[in-house]
Computed example of a mutant assay.
Amino acid sequence: MQAKVKWVEGDTFIGTSDSGHNVVFDTGSDSHAPSPMEMVLMSAGACSSVDVVSILKKARQQVSDVQVQLSAERAPSAPKVFTKLNLHFVVSGKEVSEKHVERAVSLSAEKYCSVALMLEKSVQITHSFEVQEIA
């Protein structure tokens, strides 16, 4: 896997993946795009969400929506690395089993989400979830 990041101006950069996709990063006080750390946070959420959705679909759960609310704490001084990260899944659907959601979140955390598994070597990561019934 390869990528490149090019400085545009000020505190704005554009990353280009080897698959040809572009992402804007901005670290300025008046930023117009996520910072690199925000991207890491969202990447953990996206990676884990892909797993949870896939596992729930394979379990034939009637899921209509999955969101993950991410919260992180950072070290107070440079480098301001993440010290804690929580992924809270809100799964909506019809008759979705809490047991299946718990299993999906656990499998993602322990086996499949490469982003979170990489981060957990230095970050305390916790997971939680709730199921919302849709009529």
Score class of each variant (00 low, 15 high):
Leu85Asp: 00
Thr83Met: 03
Leu85Pro: 01
Lys111Gln: 08
Gly15Cys: 01
Leu117Tyr: 07
Glu133Cys: 00
Leu56Lys: 05
Ile125Cys: 07
Thr16Ala: 00
Met39Trp: 09
Ser31Met: 14
Thr126Gln: 13
Ala59Phe: 04
Ser43Lys: 01
Met39His: 09
Leu107Met: 11
Lys4Val: 06
Ser122Ile: 11
Ile125Met: 10
His88Ala: 09
Leu85His: 01
Ala72Asp: 05
Val52Ser: 00
Thr16Trp: 00
Ser106Asn: 12
Ser35Met: 10
Val90Leu: 14
Gln132Arg: 15
His127Ser: 11
Gln61Ser: 01
Glu120Arg: 15
Val66Phe: 06
Ser122Tyr: 15
Lys94Glu: 07
Val66Tyr: 02
Val63Phe: 08
Ser31Phe: 06
Arg60Thr: 06
Val96Thr: 02
Ser19Trp: 01
Ser29Met: 15
Asp26Leu: 08
Val115Ser: 09
Val81His: 15
Val91Thr: 09
Val90Ser: 03
Phe129Ile: 11
Ala3Lys: 04
Val8Trp: 12
Met118Leu: 11
Lys121Arg: 14
Glu38Pro: 03
Thr12Val: 15
Val131Ala: 04
Ala59Ser: 12
Asp11Glu: 15
Lys57Val: 08
Ala109Cys: 04
Ala44Arg: 00
Met1Lys: 13
Asn86Gly: 01
Lys57Gln: 13
Ala46Tyr: 04
Leu85Thr: 02
Gly28Arg: 12
Val8Phe: 05
Ser122Glu: 15
Lys80Arg: 10
Gln69Arg: 12
Ala75Gly: 02
Ser31Cys: 15
Ile125Thr: 08
Ala33Ser: 11
Lys121Val: 08
Asp65Ala: 14
Ala135Asp: 13
Lys58Cys: 03
Asn86Phe: 07
Gly20Phe: 02
Val68Cys: 07
Ala109Gln: 07
Ala78Tyr: 14
Glu133Gln: 12
Leu107Arg: 01
Leu107Pro: 02
Glu110Thr: 14
His21Cys: 00
Leu70Ala: 04
Ser71Leu: 04
Met1Ile: 09
Arg74Lys: 14
Val115Thr: 09
Glu9Ile: 06
Val24His: 06
Ser97Met: 06
Leu87Trp: 09
Met39Asn: 03
Gln2Thr: 15
Glu110Pro: 00
Val101Arg: 00
Ala104Ser: 04
Phe89Leu: 05
Glu95His: 07
His21Thr: 03
Met118Gly: 09
Gly45Trp: 05
Asp65Gly: 04
Leu56Asn: 00
Val101Thr: 05
Ser43Val: 08
Gly28Gln: 15
Leu117Val: 06
Ser77Asn: 14
Ser122Lys: 13
Lys99Asn: 11
Gln62Met: 08
Asp11Arg: 11
